[in-house]
Design a protein around this nucleic acid. Sequence first.
DNA 1: ACCTGAACACCGTTCAAGT
DNA 2: ACCTGAACACCGTTCAAGT
Lengths: 197, 197
Amino acid sequence: MPAKRPPIPLTRERIIEAALHIADGQGLRRLTMRRLGDALQVEAMAIYHHLPRGKDALMDALAEHVTAVHAEPAGSWQETARAWCRASRDALREHPGVLALALTKPPKGRAAAAVREQTEQLAEAGLPDAAEAVRALRAYVFGAVAVEVQQSGWADPPGDEGETEPWRPPSRGGGSAAADADFERGLDALLAGLARS
Amino acid sequence: MPAKRPPIPLTRERIIEAALHIADGQGLRRLTMRRLGDALQVEAMAIYHHLPRGKDALMDALAEHVTAVHAEPAGSWQETARAWCRASRDALREHPGVLALALTKPPKGRAAAAVREQTEQLAEAGLPDAAEAVRALRAYVFGAVAVEVQQSGWADPPGDEGETEPWRPPSRGGGSAAADADFERGLDALLAGLARS
DNA sequence: ACCTGAACACCGTTCAAGT
DNA sequence: ACCTGAACACCGTTCAAGT
């Protein structure tokens, strides 16, 4: 018989990765400490050693993961803002299963740090009210992704007919070209509006 | 001893009302069929008679309740759109506890009907691509309410220190005047942008 | 038609115990 | 330090039974 292969050590990162996989594939309501343990080949209780506050900590970590993006300052504040918005949209679209958390939980930790960093970058690039601009930009991205994911029908059958088929992220590759164009067009308009005020 | 007072009959409306009260006061994660039953002075199982698909049906109903708004067509398509957006924002802000559902679940039933009605009104008022406009307007409202509720710290202590103190809707009356102004300003800008395309 | 009671499978979390 | 096993209170849902 083959030797029992040495177990991969449990880490916060592996836990979050597995949790995202479950949430994206089966929905947030089926993300369960016990299921998560199974996916990690471990008893559910082992997770508490890495996330002491349990499921609440897990939810916070998921929201943070999908929301703590980074972008380098570009030439103008407009280009910097554009980079931030694209990065945020990509991160949110990649994990529709935790979108509800991301749109709803106030930013903490690295997510809050990202908001501050973005604000500083825009302020340094000469934008007068950078805090208000960041609020408007975040709102724009949140709304755009929300309607896009809604329209993709991601939450429609939380397990409809056949087997539990994992979900395909909204049009990887082709199809969503229209959504991309809409997003860029709206973003241009918003940036123009922010420049005028 | 006083006569047992006749129980108020259970209805779909009363169930939804009580569920909103719990979700807004203690958060969605504490909205439980059994707790809901307690609030309605009934065994949890009685709810299934009015919502046959159980908790999934309840979630759908909550999203629908907070999302199925109505507005009358006004003079211009701009004024009509403004009325819809204000009504949507008010409805969402009133129930932060189910915001995650509202932003995330695809519209069904009366909510989907409201989207269609809004689209027809704008089309009849002469707006070329009413469907795209409605998507943009919905995205704007969703994003604005999301950041506003985030900033209000609604989800911050899901039970922090003292007792389970019920939550006060974001600045009933005074304080949110700035948020109101931001909302109207952004809405004006969006409407201007939609007119130009 | 409407609600209850008991039951079942599953959930989050604790804690003492193993290594 | 890291993980397990057993235990506890609670959850969603079913089903037969009451009225």
